[in-house]
Design a protein around this nucleic acid. Sequence first.
DNA 1: CTGGAGTGGGTATGCCAAGA
DNA 2: TCTTGGCATACCCACTCCAG
Length: 659
Amino acid sequence: LLIEKCEEDLSFGKGAFFLHQYRGMKATTTHNPNNEEEARNALKDLFQDMHISMLEDAKWWVDVGMEVHVPGKAVLWRVDSHFALIQHFLDADEATAARNVKEGQCYCVDLTAHLTALGGFRLRPTKVGTFGHRVAYVQAYTTDKALTYHPDGKTHAKNITMKEAIRPNSEGSIPYVEQVYHAYSSALEKKLTAASRIEMRVELQYAQADLHMFSPALIKDTVVCIPRRVWWTFKLMRATAAGLLLKWQNEGPKSLRKEKNALGLTLALVHLLNALNNRPYAGQGIPELYRFILPLTYYAMPPERVRIYADEPTILPEPEREGEEEEEEEDEDEDEGNDDEVVEVDPEVIQFADDGSVPIVANGLFFIRAPIRLADKAAPVPRLSNTRAKIGWDVVEKLSEARKDTIFAMIDKTQPPGEVRRGWGASNKKFARGWMRNMDEGDQPEPSRFNHINPANYPAVRLTQHDGGSDMGTDDEDEDEPDIKELLNTIWRSMLINVAYKCVTRRNGDKWIKFPHGGSAAVKEEFYSTLDVSSRLQGFRYVASDYRQWDDNFHRMFPTDPNHKMYGEKKQGWGQVSWIKDWRRLVQDWPTDKIEKVKRQIKKQFDNLSWMVMTRSDRLWDSREDGAAKSMKLVARGEMRKNAPHVIINPKYRAKDVK
DNA sequence: CTGGAGTGGGTATGCCAAGA
DNA sequence: TCTTGGCATACCCACTCCAG
């Protein structure tokens, strides 16, 4: 009658029906899964208040669940067992099961703590396929009880947010991390375990059939038992490691903390921490992040491949056996309030390898896939390495649930570290050093002790403005004042001399360079304007460059970035030559456009040379054997074949003409 | 005798493009 | 699309030499 009324009077009442929900207490009934009689009685028990025979079976669904619990162990689902589980509980053929374990709308894996071999799943079976049972959904998951057992009765925040991760307390550590650390420690102390659960919503008529067929063999293949001590220690270690990195980041310079790769690492840590207590968050932007958090991607596999990891070495040694302590029988968790039947599994069912090892390779056990650059001089903030991490700001904003400027503002607000941490042990020496150098930034570099190379000390180098066509400004750039021209000419000339002068010398005194008459001071363009390099050097290794290489080499010799630092201001040749100092002074003092214009002029000169020193980042002359590109050719005889200096040939010329 | 400069070799890492 | 090798950068370090 009511339904009829609805259909007539309400605009949205068409096709209305009643939904009946019969709610019981969680774990009202339990039974041994291997005993059919018990199972039947349990079901009867549950429905004793209802006239079960009057119900239409096909229209009633019942939520059933079971829990695998082993004393002293954390019981976790194996990702590679999903196929078997799904095939079993749907009673489906292989093709149907395969269709149902394709990651997507209907099936998704919930990794346990981002361990790619471990995880439950959620499944809404597909409509197509053949099923022995009609199942509305299946869910397999793991329950950790530690968090409800917090010693002080305080429950720590369920999730850490990005904002919490960049806001340290007065001691510099992250409150959330402290809390989970204590939670796991107490879990260790209290010898807590974790259990695997599977729940599904089935048609009433199949409820019995579905439940009692969880055979010992199937259980053995689908779960993994990790000694609880290993399990909690793992969580503890991950939380600690993540906490250290966060703390470390928070001590770094603010500007660097705002870099995408630094925030990317923060994000990754946040998600790793959260995955310890909850199923990993899966939302938009997550694939990018997980590409470098997760070490491997797993899919459920057909049965013949399920045991694929069985032969791999165990990486988790089981600590000593716990004996027969802890005979906890069952869980009293109250969560969803469905009519779950809790099935107790006989602990004897789970067998352990005799050698005391745990039959699992838990990939990704310790940390994350992408390399982390801990800290260096340039960036004393731990961050993701550039190679793979390509996180956009939109992803950072989305996953951190905060705007970029909010995050920046928060970083700006953080207290400067009260005390500079001088290293985290030997392995982090690098960090400490970089940090300390950062602190010393105000110090002035010592004046060079190589003033004698200054062109001013070489009379022949004094500007000779009328010296043929080699001067600067011979083109249409004549508006430059004469003294600037003079300066540029000086720089150009001293470059030619300095390069020759600083050519490497063997420790035994062997000189590579053959100076013209008059020594190094007599070196001019002409010295570099021949392909007969052998007449200039005792031996050499050359690269017949392309234009890009040639230009790069030029840019290294005349850098226009005022912040460009060459290694060791005083070392490896670069800091000892006067042209660099003069040039860099110009770069500091002059506007960029003017410098670029001047640089173009010098480049014209440069392009007229036939060869030049092939500079390396940290050294003017390089003579390393293994540092040389394979494409470099060696021109030298006898002793001089070893460690010959590197030279670059102007791409205008053909390599085969080089002697 | 000592410490800094200078030299030459080592290494972690980045980037790109060819290969799988 | 991921891996790999080549080549480069930017740093480190042992050793030698030499001035003070």
